[in-house]
Deep mutational scan, measured.
Amino acid sequence: CETCDRYISGRVLEAGGKHYHPTCARCVRCHQMFTEGEEMYLTGSEVWHPICKQAAR
């Protein structure tokens, strides 16, 4: 997992080739988790909900 550096077994979320436990992938702006299939916007090592990234501009 990109966030906690632990092995992932079971469900995995992926953004930009990086992998996360579903509970570790959180938006840097709103701190909410991502749901399965939800779009993730990756900037460097930061993961955003698209609407949060747009609002931060």
Rank of each mutant, 00 (worst) to 15 (best):
R29C: 13
V47Q: 05
R57P: 02
V28N: 14
H49M: 00
E14A: 06
M40I: 15
P22Q: 05
D5N: 14
T23M: 12
W48C: 12
Y41K: 14
E38K: 05
R11A: 09
Q54R: 07
G17V: 02
W48N: 10
L13Q: 04
L13P: 02
G37F: 05
V12D: 08
V47F: 10
A25F: 13
K18F: 02
R57S: 03
Q32S: 08
G10M: 02
R6Y: 07
E36F: 06
A55W: 04
E14K: 05
Y20A: 04
H21I: 00
Q54H: 04
E2L: 06
H49P: 02
T35I: 07
M33T: 15
K53V: 10
D5I: 02
F34L: 11
H21D: 00
H31Q: 05
Q32R: 12
G44L: 05
C30A: 01
H31E: 09
G44H: 07
E46G: 10
R26M: 10
K18V: 03
T43N: 09
V12M: 11
I8N: 02
A56H: 13
E46N: 12
A25M: 11
V28Q: 10
T3R: 05
L13V: 15
R29V: 07
R6V: 02
P22H: 04
R6E: 02
E14I: 12
K18W: 00
G16V: 01
K53D: 13
Q54S: 11
H21T: 01
Q32H: 06
V47E: 01
M40T: 11
R29P: 00
M33F: 14
E39Q: 09
L42N: 14
T43C: 06
Y41C: 14
S45L: 07
C52E: 02
H21F: 00
K18L: 05
K18Q: 06
M33H: 15
Q54I: 10
E38L: 01
S9V: 08
E46R: 05
H21S: 00
A55E: 13
G16P: 00
P50F: 08
A25N: 14
M33S: 15
H21W: 00
R26W: 04
V12I: 12
T35M: 06
W48V: 14
P22W: 13
Y7L: 12
E39P: 14
Y20M: 06
R6D: 04
K18R: 05
C4I: 01
G16W: 03
C30K: 02
Y7V: 14
M40Q: 14
R29S: 14
G16N: 12
R26D: 02
V47K: 06
H21V: 00
K53S: 10
T35G: 11
A56D: 08
Y7G: 08
P50K: 08
G37A: 10
H31M: 11
C24W: 00
H31A: 10
L42C: 10
C4R: 00
I51G: 14
Y41F: 05
V12R: 10
V12N: 14
V47C: 08
W48S: 13
